[in-house]
Amino acid sequence: MNTLVFRVCDESSPYWADLERLFQSEWAEFSFVDTYRAKPKLPPVILAVRNNEVIGGLAYSRFQDPHGSSEVVWVNAVYVLPEWRGKGIASELINRGVSQVSATTQSNLYAYTNVPSLYESLGWLAVGIESEPNHSVMSIPLRTQPRV
């Protein structure tokens, strides 16, 4: 399989541990157990796979809505191996991630990032709340999916 493939996965996937290790290469404390088992009702993880190798992925978490008190879904991690960056893979992961989160459960999707320009290029806006230096909270309105 030479083609880049995007797919959803869960803990039964053979790629689950590979993606967790990929995320841990950037965020040592990342753990699927902490997010997906402890916080149910998250959309599935999205993988980017080429030649049966995980080269990127996107995962979610639940955190407080920056404009309210309820917990909502956030993009928790987006990562693409350095040698695959600049090819639109992170953008595709983020766009697919947005389409997975239902507007019936929340009005916006959020991300906390050190690369706000990537999100801005995809139509996300900065949320004017305090964050660490060189980081931003980003938001995009969710659309109601048409009924089929």
Rank of each mutant, 00 (worst) to 15 (best):
V101K: 01
Q100V: 07
D34Q: 14
R85W: 01
I55Y: 01
G68K: 12
G57R: 05
N2W: 10
Q100E: 13
S69D: 15
R85Q: 12
G68I: 10
G56L: 04
V45D: 06
Q106V: 09
S102M: 11
E11S: 14
V72T: 13
W27E: 01
Y79E: 09
E20T: 09
S25F: 08
N52A: 08
R96Y: 10
L42V: 02
I55R: 04
L81W: 00
V73C: 07
T104L: 15
M1F: 12
K41L: 10
F23A: 13
A77G: 07
S102K: 09
G86K: 02
G88Y: 04
G97S: 07
V33H: 14
R85N: 00
G88T: 03
F63M: 04
W74K: 01
N52K: 10
A38G: 09
V54F: 02
V45H: 04
K39W: 09
R37C: 02
D18P: 00
E20M: 08
F32A: 02
V5M: 15
S102Y: 06
E26F: 12
E11D: 13
S107V: 00
T35N: 13
S107Y: 08
E11Q: 14
F23P: 01
V98Y: 09
S70R: 15
K41Q: 11
Y79G: 08
V75N: 04
V78T: 03
A103H: 10
S102N: 06
P14K: 14
F63A: 12
E83N: 09
N95R: 14
V72H: 09
L93Q: 07
N52F: 09
I55M: 12
V101N: 01
N52D: 14
D18N: 05
Q100W: 07
S12G: 14
K87Q: 13
C9D: 02
